[in-house]
C-alpha cells in the first residue's frame, strides 16, 4: 500500500467519523425523546387523569391538523392563539427594549443616578410577572393594555440593568481615546459607547425575551376573554380538556425556544466577533 493510499483511507475514515458524530448528535435527542414518551405512556396507564401521548394526539388531532381555523371570538386555531400572544410580546418587548436601553445608558453614564436608582431597580426586578397583573388591571381597566404593561415591566429590568453595567464597563482605553480626540457627544455615543456596550445589551435582550414570553402566558391566564395561548390553556382547563393543555404546552415550549434561538442568531449577526 502506498503512502497516498494510506492517507486517502485515513481521510475517508476521518470524514466518516465526522458524519457519524453529526448523526449521533441528532439521533441521541430523538431516541431520548421516544424513551421519555414511552415512559409517559406507561405512567398514564396507571393514572386515569393524565392522558398518555397517544391519547393526546388522538384527542387534539383536529387542532394539530388545522392550526389556522378561525370561527370568531376566542375559538381560533392554535396558530392564531400563538400569534396573538406573540404580537403582545413584540409590542411590550419593543417598548421595554427602547425604554430599558435609554434609561440604562443614562444611569450608566451618571454615577449619582446609578447610585440612587440601582437598589430600587434591584428590588423591582424580583417582583414576579403575575404580581404585576392585579395592579395593571386596576390601573388600566382594560385587558389589552394591562397585558402589554405586564410584559413591559417584566422585560425591562434585565435590559436596563445590563445596559447600565455595559456602559459602566466600557474599557478606559476607549474613553481615553474619545477624550483625547474630544469626540462630540453624538459621535461618542454611536461610535464608542453604544458599540462597546452592545454585548451587554444583547445579553439583557436575550434574558428579557424569555421573561416576556413567560409573562404573557401568566398574564393571559388571568385575563379572561381574549385571544392568546395563555387564555387557551385556561379555557381548556375550565372545560377539562387536559390533552389540549398538553398540546398548548408543547407549542409554548417550541415558541419560547424559537425566540431564544432567534435572539442568539441576531446577536451573532449584529455583534462583530470581538477580541
Amino acid at each position: 500500500m502506498t503512502l497516498a493510499q494510506k492517507q486517502t483511507i485515513q481521510n475517508r475514515f476521518k470524514l466518516k467519523a465526522k458524519t457519524w458524530e453529526r448523526i449521533d448528535d441528532i439521533l441521541t435527542p430523538i431516541v431520548t425523546l421516544f424513551i421519555l414518551l414511552a415512559l409517559w405512556q406507561l405512567f398514564s396507564a396507571f393514572n386515569q387523569n393524565l392522558p398518555g401521548p397517544i391519547k393526546v394526539v388522538q384527542d387534539t388531532w383536529k387542532l394539530i391538523l388545522y392550526p389556522f381555523y378561525d370561527r370568531g371570538g376566542t375559538d381560533k386555531g392554535l396558530f392564531w392563539q400563538v400569534w396573538a400572544s406573540l404580537q403582545r410580546v413584540l409590542i411590550g418587548y419593543s417598548i421595554a427594549a427602547v425604554v430599558g436601553i435609554t434609561v440604562g445608558v443614562i444611569i450608566g453614564l451618571n454615577k449619582r443616578a446609578y447610585k440612587g436608582l440601582d437598589p430600587i431597580f434591584q428590588i423591582l426586578r424580583t417582583v414576579p410577572p403575575l404580581a404585576w397583573v392585579p395592579i395593571a388591571l386596576a390601573a388600566l381597566q382594560q385587558n389589552q393594555p394591562a397585558a402589554l404593561f405586564v410584559i413591559f415591566i417584566t422585560a425591562v429590568w434585565p435590559i436596563l440593568i445590563n445596559t447600565a453595567v455595559g456602559v459602566k464597563q466600557i474599557p478606559q482605553d476607549y474613553i481615553n481615546v474619545s477624550q483625547v480626540l474630544q469626540l462630540p457627544r453624538g459621535e461618542f455615543f454611536f461610535k464608542v459607547l453604544f458599540p462597546a456596550a452592545l454585548p451587554y445589551i444583547f445579553t439583557g435582550l436575550r434574558i428579557a425575551i424569555g421573561l416576556a414570553w413567560l409573562a404573557i402566558i401568566a398574564a393571559e391566564i388571568v385575563m379572561s376573554g381574549i385571544v392568546g395561548i395563555g387564555f387557551f390553556i385556561w379555557n381548556a382547563y375550565q372545560n377539562g380538556q387536559v390533552s389540549e393543555i398538553i398540546l398548548a404546552l408543547v407549542y409554548i415550549g417550541l415558541v419560547g425556544w424559537g425566540l431564544d434561538k432567534l435572539m442568539a442568531w441576531l446577536q451573532n449577526k449584529i455583534l462583530p466577533a470581538q477580541r
Binding site: 482605553d173 476607549y174 481615553n176 481615546v177 461610535k191 464608542v192 458599540p195 462583530p272 470581538q274 477580541r275
Partner: peptide
C-alpha cells in the same frame, strides 16, 4: 494596548 475601536 493600541486602543483601536474593534468595531471599526
Amino acid at each position: 494596548n493600541y486602543s483601536l475601536l474593534p468595531w471599526l
